[in-house]
Design a binder for these strands. Structure first.
Lengths: 330, 330
DNA sequence: AATAATTGTGTAAACGCTTACAAACTATTT
DNA sequence: AAATAGTTTGTAAGCGTTTACACAATTATT
């Protein structure tokens, strides 16, 4: 079932059929009807592959994310799909696991599949050389980075101001009288560095002491949080508030505090990050930072579509996060 | 940069270049080297679109899931991607939101993009006529269904025996002395019917009374669970155990029980379903059913790959779930 | 009525591959 | 040395579209 059969049935040339399919304006109404009838009768569906080859555009976007099982990425991917689909694009999904090699490999595969653009969700590597492949890819297709950024001609980015968020968290903690605030982040933490910086500047701005042993790097997952808390307790840390880079860490910390007989928020206040479902499932419910991943994703998708449509758009957008206060720090 | 340029540089015909790329056996070693050198020097990447058009296979699988933001689907999608990638396939992701119209539309688009096969994650509609499009699609490409099934020549399925799981949950609850067991499920509950059947047969097998008012259909999400519990309390239900079709509902129920001053598991035991991250974040931690979504996804992917390779495979596989006992029903 | 401008349609050449088939070798057998 | 079989290579036809260009038909302008 191809354009030739349709053309034959409608008694026109394939060019005309193509014109009808792509509703080009210059087709006589009667001709159009004939063709449309044939189209319907034969139940014709265009072959997107052939189309892509001829038109040199696939209407497909490659999306690279670390791991959709993480609710942050899942949210991003969901909204990206929704937005792209609205604009007529499909999405090829790649889970990189945050590994450089996979990322390189997948980007290569996506180029082979001739995606029209790529969205890159997540953090960029610290080493500059580890990001050169992104620069390379951007020579071929536009790249938009979600919550990380890179300087480049054909690279666009939309980020949440995590540093500001962390600053604000510390600020509100301080305004509630907390003076000794710990920060717990995990190995793969998303923009962990930005948050850490915000923590530092927040502490400084509030005139609070910064103690290195209150800054804890732990493994990811609920267990990482639990262990971080245990470490804090073992060193007899006197902090009255704990800020984490991920809700799941905060959940582990709540668990640890419960085990140690500490009351939240009375003995210790806890602050999470991401405003994931999880934050409403713990007891007490978590205060957390809504990092607006949905907004980020929407903006990212729209940016890319604009670029692909030849419209112009700023290269960089910053979204403001919002603090959400719940029981763990009312 | 195409095969012609490579051929010119290597001083061979395009056919030979193609043979080298697809490492067909009949190429003289020296020729192969020449070509490989040219390939490397020009940094050639095959155009997958052209390849697909010529070879009539895209090495792409369409995946339809309701909503990746739900951890069940996220897990499925993650494992599917991993498995398919290992076999050299990419994945186009479609979130259907469980809507029939979207499902139809996306399946059509996937056919246009000439995917080699489809995976369908989630529940099938009750009305037979609402699933005919799946039958239609299966005339064109093989379809594998994950945790739902449909009879068809080119349709494969792998399901978790949710009915058995529910039966077992009731059984263990009964063996712990519970006689009055409520079942709470939500509107979009995944295989909610199978679970309900398991609940019924479990209650019967244990010789326990079934009361319709203990079977509660509620909205999805943590709030749905909370409201279900409130309803139960308002009708002065005397049940000592509550089984839910989703962990998130159980989380809401825990919240409700806490608000009502009930102790879990002493006053009321709670059982969830899915063994999501969430189950380890609540206080107390949730007993739940591990529905093996990872295993299901792996099997589904492998099944499809086998079909595509022309190997044969059973049309249907059943995976046994496993009960996980934690604090909410030790 | 003749000419110019506009609109509609068809022909054929791309797009970058794979692959059937034929041709040209090379190795083996007689 | 000729005949045969096997291996390696090249030629050319497809895959199903889009689209530049040419031409035909229609409409507008003089």
């Amino acid at each position: 079932m191809n354009i030739y059969e349709v053309a034959k049935k409608a008694g026109v040339s394939i060019a005309t059929v193509s014109r009808v399919i792509n509703n080009s304006p210059n087709v006589r109404p009667e001709t159009r009807e004939k063709v449309e009838a044939a189209l319907k009768e034969l139940n014709y569906r265009p072959n997107a592959i052939a189309r892509s080859l001829a038109a040199n555009t696939t209407k497909t976007i490659g999306v690279l994310a670390s791991d959709v099982r993480d609710s942050y990425y899942a949210n991003a991917v969901y909204i990206l799909e929704q937005e792209f689909r609205m604009m007529g694009y499909d999405m090829i999904l790649c889970n990189t696991g945050g590994e450089l090699e996979k990322r390189k490999k997948y980007m290569g595969l996506l180029l082979e599949k001739k995606v029209d653009g790529m969205v890159f969700v997540g953090s960029v590597f610290k080493e500059k050389k580890d990001n050169t492949h992104i620069m390379d890819v951007s020579e071929v297709v536009p790249v938009v980075m979600l919550n990380s950024s890179l300087q480049g001609n054909n690279i666009y980015s939309v980020v949440c101001d995590d540093q500001l968020a962390a600053f604000k968290v510390v600020e509100s903690l301080a305004s509630r009288g907390h003076r000794e605030i710990a920060y717990v982040y995990d190995v793969d933490s998303f923009s962990g560095l930005a948050k850490l910086n915000g923590y530092y500047s927040g502490m400084q701005a509030a005139g609070l002491p910064i103690r290195q042993e209150w800054i804890i790097r732990t493994e990811s997952g609920i267990n990482g949080g639990y262990m971080a808390l245990i470490r804090l307790m073992e060193m007899q840390a006197s902090c009255t508030a704990i800020f984490t880079s991920e809700d799941i860490l905060a959940a582990g910390i709540l668990k640890g505090l419960l085990a140690k007989g500490k009351k939240v928020p009375d003995d210790v206040a806890v602050f999470g990050y991401n405003d994931s479902v999880l934050a409403r499932c713990t007891t007490p419910e978590l205060s957390t930072v809504d990092n607006k991943v949905g907004v980020l994703a929407r903006e990212a998708a729209r940016m890319l579509c604009k670029v692909l449509d030849g419209e112009d758009t700023p290269h960089h957008k910053i979204i403001e996060p919002e603090l959400v206060f719940r029981e763990s720090c009312p």
